[in-house]
Design a protein around this nucleic acid. Sequence first.
DNA 1: CGGTGTGGGGAAACCGGTTGCTGGACGAGG
DNA 2: CCTCGTCCAGCAACCGGTTTCCCCACACCG
Lengths: 353, 353
Amino acid sequence: MTRKSADNGSRSTIRDVAARAGVSAATVSRVLGGVYPVSTTTRTRVMRAVRDLDYVADARAKAIAGVGTPTLGFVLDDITGPSFALMAHGVEREATRLGHLCLVCSTDGDAQHELDFVETMRAQRAAAVILVGGGADTPDYRARTAHVADALAAAGSRLVLCGRPPLDPGAPVTVIEYDNEGGAYALCAHVLSQGHQRILFLGGKPDHTTAQGRERGYLAAHRARGVETDPTLRLTGDFTRDSGYRLMREALAARLEFTAVMAATDMVAAGALTALHEAGLTVPGDVSLVGYDDIPFARDLHPALTTAHVPYEELGRLAVRTALGRERGSSSDEHLLLGTHVVVRDSVGAVGS
Amino acid sequence: MTRKSADNGSRSTIRDVAARAGVSAATVSRVLGGVYPVSTTTRTRVMRAVRDLDYVADARAKAIAGVGTPTLGFVLDDITGPSFALMAHGVEREATRLGHLCLVCSTDGDAQHELDFVETMRAQRAAAVILVGGGADTPDYRARTAHVADALAAAGSRLVLCGRPPLDPGAPVTVIEYDNEGGAYALCAHVLSQGHQRILFLGGKPDHTTAQGRERGYLAAHRARGVETDPTLRLTGDFTRDSGYRLMREALAARLEFTAVMAATDMVAAGALTALHEAGLTVPGDVSLVGYDDIPFARDLHPALTTAHVPYEELGRLAVRTALGRERGSSSDEHLLLGTHVVVRDSVGAVGS
DNA sequence: CGGTGTGGGGAAACCGGTTGCTGGACGAGG
DNA sequence: CCTCGTCCAGCAACCGGTTTCCCCACACCG
């Protein structure tokens, strides 16, 4: 009555199974575990007891004993964002394909929360922790992230930065980025090639590295073509749909002059598009528009959005693969840069046509 | 050299900390754990050792010992779907708010995979498992799900069905649904009230309960208004954007007669809208369109989509709350039904106007 | 018939924590 | 000065598994 009673919600232990099968716990473990020689009669008896009790071994106990499925932590800003969702999907698929469990946490941009979660993952002895999505690249950020990277590395785990500002070289970190600047450059060059000279840039937070990269591309494309940029055409907000909507309304209200809009994100572009429609402007007739990310919805906007495709799902897959399967040079800090390409749809037209 | 060597990637144990602080493991545990009386000098020594070694207690070991954060499992079809993402967000937020970890798994509609994951969750001794998203309501499904529900309940855990066909009464399951039929009824009634008589229904898989509920609402609204329904106007596909696009093209090619389209999903509506645009039809001028779900993107379609709002995020929150905080009647099977309401935007017009 | 090899299974140590119980040291009071 | 009570810390058992080591029984062979 003191223990081993199965009356309350208590799960049955391996010893319960052993007792029911009339063998020792060791034998049950061996039957279940694998390749140790066990006589057929014993095996059947044990299996029968297992089935009768509907026994499942405690994964945590197995983990502690050194056997068992490693888990992997996954942190993102907000699963609600389509690009994050795509990465999450990639991560999750690849993790389960490799037989890993996936602990997830969204931070809503709270850096402290993020750090806390990484600490939790360390306590969980996660095989790797994947941090996803851009952030502010402050010295403070670098220091703190480098510290958790060290802590993780010391524990035999690994920190993966995915589409996020890399740390100083030497930090035990795997970085997987995609080319924000290159994609934005190509995209902006495309718009410029249609004759547009004044392109409104709807950016993200000023210290957000993803936003910075895309703005750099925007600027570089102008420079390469010898087109001067007007600082008043560069607005900052965040990566949400509402930001795009609001920024666009403000730009319209301020009577800013532009013939094209480059949004830092497809979401921003979607909001901007709605604002344009509401103002009675047509796209691409009156103004051209491009986004960034190529989220699935981009083609269902009207007009279908010209944007830069980022292989988000593949990014997530890659993150877990490199995090887990880093055979050679266990401490080598890898850095991958995935390319992006522009996909032309219907939202940009030639100026003056 | 045999053990306790910290050379490889091995994390430090509580005994390492104890040794370094010159105390026993029990004392370290008590210092860290909480309220047990410990002298100040000992406490400082231990804390110092903890900091030196950057020690974090193994959460799995704690869990096994009966202390520690319970986790909770979360299964969905595909995190990429906006409504799923919303629910996932709600689940995750509420779980972390309550101090629980969140193990996630997406099944891509594979029932076997789903069952496997639930089994894994049982092995993890998850506090609850939340199954999200509709499925086929076959006898086989009921039997298998009921079985895992029993297994979970026997282990002191709980299965939560969220927006998904309920089991036979008596099964130890918490069901949280939203009113598919009612929402579809209201939505369809709204369309009918604008004078539309022939409404194309773009449905999901025939045996999918969510799709069925919405179709029932569609039919009931017709019946209530005395409008006859034409079976050839009810097409089946799935809940994806591509399905809507394809179905709409087929309907157009087949020269089906209709003045309005009711899509089973906003995603389906998005695809359908694009197909309509491509065919040179205007919405709502030539044909009216409604969706279902009120995903964030719905208002950025052009025209902004009239649809039924489902409180997905709240649904997720509620799921974990009821799953975890079921105080009274530990074995009572609860059943919650959340209401939906139609949100009118610009995609339906009066017929003949 | 006895020695040896081997297959099968149990006792016990271990994984990394927690906690009940015990006991020593120290201060206070008689 | 002795005794008693309190405070603190350690020993050891326990959580639920795995695995090493060992022993027993049996078959086989000389």
